[in-house]
Design a protein around this nucleic acid. Sequence first.
RNA 1: GCCGGCUUAGCUCAGCUGGUAGAGCACCUGAUUUGUAAUCAGGUGGUCAGGGGUUCGAAUCCUCUAGCCGGCACCA
Length: 647
Amino acid sequence: MSSSAPEIHVTLPDGKILTVARGTTGADIAAMIGPGLAKAALALEVNGKDYDIFRPIEEDATVKIITRKDDKALEMIRHDASHIMAMAVQELFPGTQVTIGPSIEDGFYYDFARNQPFTPDDLPKIEAKMHEIVKADLPTRRDVWPREKAIAHFKELGEQYKAELIESIPAGEDVSLYWHGDWHDLCRGPHFASTAKIGDAFKLTKIAGAYWRGDAKNAQLQRLYGTAWRDKKELEAYLTRMEEAEKRDHRKIGREMDLFHQQEEAAGQVFWHDHGYTLWRTLENYVRRKIAHAGYIEVKTPQLIDRKLWEASGHWENYRENMFIAEVEEENKILAVKPMNCPAHIQIFKDGLKSYRDLPLRMAEFGSCHRYEPSGALHGIMRVRAFVQDDAHIFCTEAQITTESAAFCQLLMEMYRELGFTEVRVKLSTRPEEHRIGSDQQWDIAEKALADAMDAAHLPYTINPGEGAFYGPKLEFVLRDCIGRDWQCGTLQVDFNMPGRLGATYIAEDGNRKNPVMLHRAILGSMERFIGILIENYAGKFPLWLAPVQAVVATIVSDADGYAQGVQTALKKAGIRADIDLANEKINYKVRQHSLAKVPYLLVVGRKEAENRTVAVRKLGVEKQEVIGLEALAAQLAEEATPPDLA
RNA sequence: GCCGGCUUAGCUCAGCUGGUAGAGCACCUGAUUUGUAAUCAGGUGGUCAGGGGUUCGAAUCCUCUAGCCGGCACCA
């Protein structure tokens, strides 16, 4: 590379090479290509790095011009919007310090340090100011400063957080500053050439607290969230999507479909009603069949276990604060309500001699657990203090880890698919920096085994560095709720430590006692959370096999009451969960009621049907009805209601 | 746990700057026997989340507590 030549070569995506003056900008290049592109160009990629449209190119490069339809442009709209919001906030609320403000999925946020809290009334004001700034079309300027100068500058302005941010950049490096009119911020960029480029399709959405640098030990800042799009139509579509999502909220549907309720006296716990518990049992039985088929045994262990066992397992030390305790004065004992099942399963493993011939031993339990979760973490039935895990522990040899892990991943994906989930995110959480037990060598083996299992199952995953459990690495299988929040459901954890700590051994082929390796695993995770996700995924319109009420027989006139009861009996005999509605109401009313209740099949009977032993079938969401003979209907529904593993 | 907001009938929500509570649906009672998304009429129902305070007077103002909602932190 000749750094002093007056000209440089610029390679375009189509392979064309332009020879241009050193210091030429993206805007210049776009203009050379054509006036249309000159207008549309917003930013560019230079040798894979993001450049502002007005930033000079100083060396030979491959460039790609970014226009509004590129995803990158949407990201920039959001990033620019966060800057413009910060500018608006500092104009409206002098003395507010800026910190960081990135673009995120669907929008952006900016964290501010300010003594006064922002109120919901402030959002429209800030939004209006933002529109002013956009209309003013302030030009953007990029400056590169030495690190020390930038630190001194922001300190002088009283921007402590910005100064701290720059201080964490390695010494000797330059930093970039962006100016929009008079206002400026430390930023990596890139940004549009002026404020008007973002358009007007943005909206501020919420106020939240957020810790400086994501650490609860630090000061809490005020975060303002917003959403931003290419145009109004996209913005409207997003807002409509959010409105629709609210309608599938499991808490709302849970009440509407009479599935469960929660109340103050049992915060973080669930009162399951008949309909909800029917769904629960259907799901539980499905899991039970699947794991039995996969070679698991099922056990049940105590709720209250002496603290001594939790001390031995290491949980007392790590999670004492989050455990419910039961004290028995007479016996002077402290019992913990079990927060997890593994120590109990080890007790079963230890009871009696085990041989290598018993391994792998797959021990499952629908284990009821209690954890004192922080009050702010509670969320409907997704995050609760009392929950049931579809838990299991696979006791195996080191050599069996990989096959067992791969088999588990396969089982999990099969079950997720059968339950209607195809979009699953997988995260591999590796060893924590501190507070971990076991040797590095064991962590190496364990982390590799999980990665191998994912590869064997051909599943993509992301790495979550340092997020593993204190005793081992874990795979987390994450599902999304209706408004895009991620929830961990399935998990697989490799544990070389717990069996040794609690004295679990087996007789190996050579006659010596060895500690087994333990795989902690769950597929649904918590029954409560998974049902919450199921509700939101289906918006309450469950597939027939899961629906709490599968059919309602509704009469048109009371003359048909007797026949209707016969229909209900016949369906129940065929294993269908059928209700009956003999109310003195018009059929219109009944159709509406049961449609709103999301009953999959409404079976209408009047005089005609009673005479012919038929029913008029109205399927949920389908206006057209079909008249069909009673026996044929029972057979058809029974077939359709067969769980996927039995079909 | 932290920041902010919210809490009025079973549900969804009105109730202006303080003058002892209201609608729709649901529920109950009648009438109506009805053919695919609300038949009509009447009626029951609230310690306005709970405690304390200000005031002649509090759903409304202040304060504490709890729960919930949105984030953050946490999640064996």
